[in-house]
Amino acid sequence: MAAGGDHGSPDSYRSPLASRYASPEMCFVFSDRYKFRTWRQLWLWLAEAEQTLGLPITDEQIQEMKSNLENIDFKMAAEEEKRLRHDVMAHVHTFGHCCPKAAGIIHLGATSCYVGDNTDLIILRNALDLLLPKLARVISRLADFAKERASLPTLGFTHFQPAQLTTVGKRCCLWIQDLCMDLQNLKRVRDDLRFRGVKGTTGTQASFLQLFEGDDHKVEQLDKMVTEKAGFKRAFIITGQTYTRKVDIEVLSVLASLGASVHKICTDIRLLANLKEMEEPFEKQQIGSSAMPYKRNPMRSERCCSLARHLMTLVMDPLQTASVQWFERTLDDSANRRICLAEAFLTADTILNTLQNISEGLVVYPKVIERRIRQELPFMATENIIMAMVKAGGSRQDCHEKIRVLSQQAASVVKQEGGDNDLIERIQVDAYFSPIHSQLDHLLDPSSFTGRASQQVQRFLEEEVYPLLKPYESVMKVKAELCL
């Protein structure tokens, strides 16, 4: 049975990233139509530049190519590739079939990587351009969430054990800070992308030097003109047959890092959902379990974690691919890159769409948070109580021993009897502590235990987050809708 299948058929496997999760716009960027249309555009740009620099290419040939950029006979191309065992030459023939007058000058002087690699770089750039505003929107939604809850005390956790208090907004800023680093890295790697350009079979530009009869300047002009037509500021000066596969490492490393950030955020949300302090959106008709109707599973956060793990592992592909590119190139890269580049971007696209949807509907339960604080705060307040007693004339050592005994009794009630923490009640009825009984409410005010959390939130948002989001103001209103 021949390899390949009808990918629109229910009898043929289709990647869930495309069929179930990723956005239509990201799927289109990695589609065959987008790819092969870009090949034709690159052939047109090459012909236009070659004509401008004096090669015998007519206006009629150029116009014929322009008129057929979208006229792609995919069936013919597939048949040609089956016959020739070469995808680029299959599309040269297919393009030439609908451009008979231009057929002889299509791909003039070029090698397969002229269309293959340059198209990949265009796709990487455009895919990054799709991700950047999506990530900015996630940051914006979380920034709104953090600002609104900047002063809401909550129990902090280290080692997932109760620690000092923080605020809900401050905790959210930990998430935002990681995503801001990801946004900066995505922008950097996007701006650092260079075009492969017009380089020939081993990167020496020998074929173009021959076409222009040894004119170095025209060869350099050709490279520059096509690079500018493709919208790049610069091209690699040095290439082998391909652009260095280190570029793929750079791009997928940034995406993998984004995956790590999203995994951490969504894990926190899942843990908070278990504590009943916070939940992701839950639709009115949504079913959490087929057997347990009360369940409210954090399905979206779980999906993000599941896909983020996949995204983090994909960076190993370009690392290994770059390491086995012998001399000017081997074909070890080809099949692998067809999979890992598309999957990385479709996965990143999915987790950003999902995280935006989550961040637009996060639900906080202040009463649950308050109750958990009441359970733990008495123990945390013991040092403040000791200091207040010393100020009232008591002995630190005597007070410490009193607190120690009462704390152990209260802990026994919590752990052995399943009761509430009654340390404060014990202190309130103990005559030894009568000098500070009137101060206990103040000493137990949760806001006095959150330090500068709310001020940190305000400063972080104003100095770091809002300036970073400013270039994306025009796209901030787009909502994230999930079908599944």
Rank of each mutant, 00 (worst) to 15 (best):
A3G: 13
L255P: 02
R452Q: 09
W43N: 05
D332L: 02
R141E: 11
M476P: 15
D192Y: 13
V115K: 03
R338V: 00
L53S: 09
K224I: 06
L209R: 11
H263V: 06
E283V: 10
Q455F: 15
L331C: 03
Q428T: 11
Q61H: 07
E70D: 02
K264Y: 05
Y13E: 14
T350Y: 08
A381S: 05
V262A: 15
D445V: 09
R194Y: 10
P24L: 14
H107E: 07
A235V: 10
Y21F: 12
F232P: 00
R309W: 01
A136S: 07
L406Q: 06
L443C: 14
S67H: 05
L355K: 00
T354H: 15
T154H: 09
T166E: 10
M26G: 02
K170F: 08
L128W: 07
Q63I: 11
F195A: 05
K224T: 10
L222W: 03
N421D: 13
F212R: 03
E376C: 04
S447H: 14
L209P: 05
Q455L: 08
D248S: 03
P56H: 11
R452G: 11
Q409I: 02
I249K: 02
R459S: 12
L55T: 07
S334F: 01
S412K: 11
G418A: 03
P281D: 14
Q164G: 01
A78M: 10
Q177D: 11
P100G: 05
R329D: 00
F327R: 02
F433W: 03
K101D: 15
N68P: 15
E473Y: 15
Y34I: 11
A103S: 13
Q456E: 01
H263Q: 00
S334R: 03
L341V: 05
L42W: 00
H263I: 09
H217C: 08
V219F: 04
Y432C: 11
E279M: 02
A78E: 06
I436N: 05
L128G: 15
Q241R: 03
L179Y: 04
M89C: 04
V251S: 11
W326S: 06
S334W: 02
I72R: 04
Q241I: 00
R452A: 13
V138T: 11
L444K: 03
H86R: 01
K199Q: 07
P298L: 04
E481G: 15
S306C: 07
F236K: 05
P378C: 07
N71H: 05
T244H: 15
T202I: 04
E220F: 15
S438F: 11
D333S: 00
F145M: 15
V247M: 14
A22F: 11
Q51I: 08
D6Y: 01
A103E: 10
R245E: 01
V457A: 10
A410G: 06
Q320I: 14
W39M: 13
R171T: 00
T94A: 13
P100E: 10
M316I: 08
T154K: 02
D441E: 13
F30G: 01
E383I: 01
D441M: 07
V226A: 03
C340F: 13
S253R: 06
D268V: 01
T58I: 05
E64S: 07
A163V: 02
L272Q: 06
D268F: 04
A49W: 15
H86C: 00
E80R: 12
Q241C: 04
T350N: 11
P10W: 12
L42E: 04
Q356S: 06
Q416F: 13
A235N: 08
I358N: 06
G104L: 09
